[in-house]
Simulated scan of single mutants.
Amino acid sequence: MGLYRSDSSPQLWVRKQSRILDVALTRLRLGHTRLTAYLHRLGLSPDPYYPWCRTVEETIEHFLLDCPCFHSHRVVLRDRLVALGVSTFDLPTLLAAVGVHFLHQAAVLRLTCVFLKKCGQLPRL
């Protein structure tokens, strides 16, 4: 473990309350999901396109930041982030709370988890 991390303290993203959410966040961070763009790269999906947006590849970026299917959930997430004083809305912020004040990092990850649950896509991640 010393090769990868210099300390063994628990990380913010390890919640220990919901294994499903912990696994989903870890897969999203690593890029190893069941989204079709990744499955297509592995030869496990005939095409990389999103099932609902047939002209757009189903990438992590599209799922979290752009897909119109989850627009209403994304608006709620963005509003709650702004209420915390977080103005950036990108993958590093949503998945690891990068650039967020340490007092708000856990809240950002919790809000991301709420978004993931509300979207109903956890089995696909």
Rank of each mutant, 00 (worst) to 15 (best):
66 D>Q: 12
66 D>A: 04
67 C>H: 03
67 C>W: 02
67 C>Y: 04
67 C>T: 04
68 P>Y: 04
68 P>I: 04
68 P>L: 04
69 C>L: 15
69 C>P: 00
70 F>S: 01
70 F>E: 01
70 F>N: 01
70 F>T: 02
70 F>M: 01
71 H>W: 10
71 H>T: 00
71 H>G: 01
71 H>S: 05
72 S>G: 02
72 S>T: 09
72 S>H: 11
72 S>R: 14
72 S>K: 12
73 H>M: 03
73 H>W: 06
74 R>Y: 03
75 V>I: 13
75 V>R: 12
75 V>P: 00
76 V>Q: 11
76 V>M: 09
77 L>R: 03
77 L>V: 01
77 L>D: 00
78 R>L: 07
78 R>I: 05
78 R>K: 13
79 D>Y: 04
79 D>I: 02
80 R>Q: 12
81 L>N: 06
81 L>G: 04
82 V>T: 13
82 V>F: 13
82 V>K: 15
83 A>T: 09
84 L>S: 07
84 L>P: 01
85 G>F: 06
85 G>D: 05
86 V>R: 09
86 V>Y: 10
86 V>G: 06
87 S>H: 15
87 S>L: 15
87 S>D: 11
87 S>P: 00
88 T>G: 03
88 T>Y: 15
88 T>R: 15
88 T>Q: 15
89 F>S: 05
90 D>E: 11
90 D>H: 08
90 D>P: 00
90 D>T: 07
90 D>Q: 07
91 L>N: 09
91 L>S: 12
92 P>G: 05
92 P>S: 06
93 T>M: 06
93 T>A: 09
93 T>S: 07
94 L>Q: 09
95 L>N: 07
95 L>A: 07
95 L>D: 04
95 L>E: 08
96 A>S: 14
96 A>R: 15
96 A>E: 09
97 A>S: 01
97 A>L: 01
97 A>G: 01
98 V>R: 14
98 V>H: 11
99 G>M: 10
99 G>D: 04
99 G>S: 11
99 G>R: 14
100 V>M: 12
101 H>V: 10
101 H>R: 15
101 H>N: 12
101 H>A: 13
101 H>P: 00
102 F>E: 12
102 F>C: 08
102 F>A: 09
102 F>L: 12
103 L>S: 12
103 L>E: 07
103 L>R: 15
104 H>W: 11
104 H>Q: 10
104 H>M: 11
106 A>I: 05
106 A>V: 03
106 A>Q: 13
106 A>C: 04
107 A>I: 05
107 A>P: 00
107 A>Y: 07
108 V>L: 07
108 V>E: 04
108 V>N: 06
108 V>G: 04
109 L>N: 02
109 L>A: 03
109 L>E: 05
109 L>Y: 05
110 R>Q: 10
110 R>D: 06
111 L>F: 13
111 L>S: 08
111 L>A: 10
111 L>Y: 14
112 T>P: 02
112 T>S: 12
112 T>V: 11
113 C>K: 13
113 C>I: 06
114 V>N: 10
114 V>S: 09
114 V>Q: 14
114 V>L: 11
115 F>R: 08
115 F>H: 09
116 L>C: 03
116 L>Y: 07
116 L>F: 08
